[in-house]
Every structure is written in C-alpha cells, then in structure tokens.
Amino acid sequence: MLNNIQLLIDFPVFNLQLLLDGLMIGAIFALAAYGLALVWGVMNVKNLAQGEFVIMGGYIAYYLSIDAVVRIGIPGTDITFFEVMKPGVNPLWALPVVIPIMFGFGWLMYFLIIRYVIDRDLFTSLLATFGAAIVIQQVLNLIFGPDVQTAESGLGTRILFGSVTIQEIRVLSLIIAGILAALVVLFMKNSRMGQAIRATAQDPRAARVMGIDTDRVYAFTFSLNAAICGAAGVLISMIWVIQPFYGIAHSIRSFVIVVAAGLGNLPGVIVTAFGLGALEQYGGFALGAEFQQAVVVGLLIVVLVVRQIMQARHRQVVR
C-alpha cells in the first residue's frame, strides 16, 4: 500500500489518470444517485432496485448493439408468427430507446408495487423494492444468461502527456450525463409537472388540497428515476461490464452519495458523486481493486458517524 502511494508521489502524472477516470465515472454515478434522491425526497421510498434499473438499461443497450434474431411466437414451441434478423447498432443509439422503455417500466412498477407501499413504514418499502430487485436480476439472468456482457461504442482513446489515457466514450458520457442532468433540473424548475413534484415533496397534503393529483406525481417521479437510471446503464455498459447480479454495487453507490450529500441537496449529490468516483479510483490504486468498492462502504460509515456526532452536539445546544 505504501509502495503504491509512493508511486503516486514519484509519478504525479498518474494522479491525473486516476482523477480523470474517477470524475468521468462519477458523472454516471451522479445520474443514478440523483434519481434516488428524487424518489427518496419526494416519495420517501428508498428504492433498493436502483442498481437493477441501471443494469436493465445496460442490457437493452447491449441487446440493441448485437445482431439478434427477433422471434415472436409461443415460447417453448416452434410456432412462430414473425421472425426478423435485427442488425446491431451503435449502443449510443440505445439512449433514446432506453429512456422511454425504462420510463414505461417505472410507471408499471409504480402501479404494480410502489403504490401499495408508499405510505407504509420504511421497512415495507425496503422489502418491496428489494424483492423487485431480485425478480429483475433473475429475469435478466433467464433472458441473457449469467455471463458478463459489454456494449461497444467503437470510440477510441486519446493520450495526454504521453502516459495518461482518456477513453473518448468516457468524455462523451460525461457530456451526456451533464446534458441529462441539466434537462432534469430545468424540467423540475420550469414545467408544471416539475412544480407539482416540488410541491408534493414539500407537503403532500397541501399539494392535494391545491388540486395536485399526487398519485400521478408519484408515478411520474418514480418513472423519471427509472429512465435516468436506464440512461446511466447505457453509459455503464459501454465503459464497464454488465452482469445480471451487478446491480447491487450501483444501488450501494447511489445510497452512499445521497446519504453523504444530504437529501434535497442537488449540487451536493453531484459533487459527492464526482468525489466518490475519484475516491474509488484512489482506493483501488492504493489498496488493490478488491477494496475499490469497500472504500464506498467505508465512506458511508464515516459519514454516518460524523452526522451522528454533529446531531448529538446539536441536541446538546438545544437542551
């Protein structure tokens, strides 16, 4: 470990590599974390299927990127009504496809599950979304199999200062994530639905009195979250690898970011996501790839302890 840190001091250029890699992947973490902050803040539902939404988006991108035979018929039989060869396209084109599909999926999941747990206690919503996460994992496993998959953007790599590599897809992802985040912020500020969402978040009862259909607001919020996660998944599938059971890592990251930033603190979510991305890279470098994700959980513990101390101090003052 000390050797590795010494290495960073001796060759400062590698700091740049880790920082850039971390910031660019952090932008994608920010997307999923922002979706979670939205659902958590507006609906008070802690969605444990967050990572599964990301992976679903990734698998749709992967599926679009490969040549496949699309067959519509009766499963388990040879009866086929319709069969066509689907050529693979660049997975970047999956973005406009994934966003509506995942939005629809979120809507469906809201009306099938979330609607019934939204005003129950914390434990019920955790259990329900955890169950949904397991179902999504297993369905993905049945459809795509347990092997890891990747989607290829076909973009190249640039070299800076002779030894820092920047994958163009990561830069593009940073830009796309930025545009998506800006769109969502603008939407929340300016559109009627955005205003309704913010009103519901402040006080659902008052919002209902004002004539806001809060059920619809909740459904929209949850679907928006699923769509954002799906978009993050498309980017992830082109940068990392996806596998049906990899969702949990993304769920944990989203939780850590939202908890560390504090609810309702959008700039905080973005800064924390960038920070977490960079921290993961440094953790992986200094301690080995095995501890890359352990750093995330470690950060969560630190944040919780610090908050606890701060809150305790606050109470003393009040007393």
Binding site: L7, F11, F14, S163, Q281, A289, E290, Q293
Partner: peptide, 22 residues
C-alpha cells in the same frame, strides 16, 4: 503487483494504471 479482484468485478483500470507505472 499482487492485486485481488472482487467477485463483482467491472473495473480494473486502477490495477492497469499501476501496471503502466511499474
């Protein structure tokens, strides 16, 4: 370099950065 990889490995760029360094 003697790195362990996690079960849900999806990124080994830090190991490879080390490889480039040493």
């Amino acid at each position: 370099i003697d790195d362990k990889l996690p079960r849900d490995l999806s990124d080994m760029s830090t190991t490879l950065t080390k490889v480039r360094a040493v």
